[in-house]
Simulated scan of single mutants.
Amino acid sequence: MPRRTASWLLAKRSILVSLHAGGERGITYLFLMFAIVLIGIVTTMGAQQWKMMMQRELEADLLTKGIEIQNALALYSTAMKAGRVIQGEVYPQSLMDLTRLPKPYLRKVYLDPLTRGTWDYIRSPSGGIMGVRTRRKGEPMKKHEFPLAVRHFDGMKSYRDWIFQHPNPSTVSLFPSTAPPGPGGSPQQSAPSPGVPEPFTTPSDDTAPEDSTFSPILPATQ
């Protein structure tokens, strides 16, 4: 009997030790699975936040470069029509024409920020470039609170609708076609818009007259 009792006690002790060890392993396994799931959730959320941040930066870059091209087109057309009787607008055949000396209107030929390639050009009936837009399709994150030069983008649901051109609905409202008469009855010169920069000039430019200035950009009536 004592031997049987001792054997039974040893077997019972072994079973209890095994159950205790198995319980610890089970708890460790559950904790490990919970940690893996938690890490996956945090990683996914971080990736989504990073993607949203990058998309906002690309959209801001697209707006900056697009508006600069739009302003350059406006300045180019105004300069080409100066002193001439021309109906409508005058547009360049390429963006490179906007960068040529002695009076470049654009710092450089920018690439499409969203595709890192060429823009989709909006051509006028004469074949000149009257505007640009990205080739990328998709819904923008930004839908409201646009700069004045492109405030008509408000509510648009596709990048393809962001067309940077001259003239456009926003610039037409910024530059009225007629100016009120001055004190002497002559038309009063409108003040230039803060959204349209002056063209870049070089010290060696001696072809333009000393008092040459660009008049406000007025959309012509076809």
Score class of each variant (00 low, 15 high):
52 M>D: 14
127 G>S: 10
106 L>N: 02
144 H>C: 01
22 G>Y: 01
190 S>M: 15
29 Y>C: 12
158 S>I: 06
222 Q>E: 11
151 R>W: 00
21 A>I: 04
70 Q>T: 02
101 L>K: 11
185 G>E: 08
119 W>L: 02
209 P>W: 05
18 S>A: 14
207 T>R: 06
161 D>M: 09
2 P>S: 12
175 F>A: 10
216 P>E: 09
176 P>F: 02
86 I>L: 09
154 D>E: 15
85 V>F: 13
208 A>E: 14
132 V>F: 01
147 P>D: 14
180 P>M: 08
109 V>Q: 06
211 D>A: 10
30 L>N: 07
139 E>H: 02
106 L>D: 04
77 S>L: 01
132 V>E: 05
106 L>F: 02
166 H>D: 07
214 F>W: 14
3 R>M: 12
87 Q>I: 11
125 P>E: 11
115 T>F: 02
128 G>S: 06
117 G>S: 11
100 R>D: 03
148 L>H: 08
63 L>P: 04
162 W>P: 00
120 D>F: 07
79 A>K: 04
24 E>D: 10
99 T>Y: 03
15 I>M: 13
184 G>K: 13
56 R>M: 09
126 S>Q: 13
1 M>H: 14
81 K>F: 00
206 D>K: 15
132 V>P: 01
195 G>K: 06
44 T>D: 11
180 P>N: 08
162 W>C: 02
43 T>Q: 15
87 Q>A: 12
186 S>F: 14
216 P>H: 06
128 G>W: 03
89 E>W: 06
98 L>H: 04
45 M>W: 05
81 K>Q: 09
6 A>V: 14
163 I>A: 07
191 A>K: 14
106 L>E: 06
157 K>W: 00
22 G>K: 06
206 D>Q: 14
169 P>I: 02
52 M>Q: 10
79 A>H: 12
105 Y>A: 09
116 R>A: 12
144 H>T: 15
8 W>S: 15
210 E>K: 12
194 P>S: 09
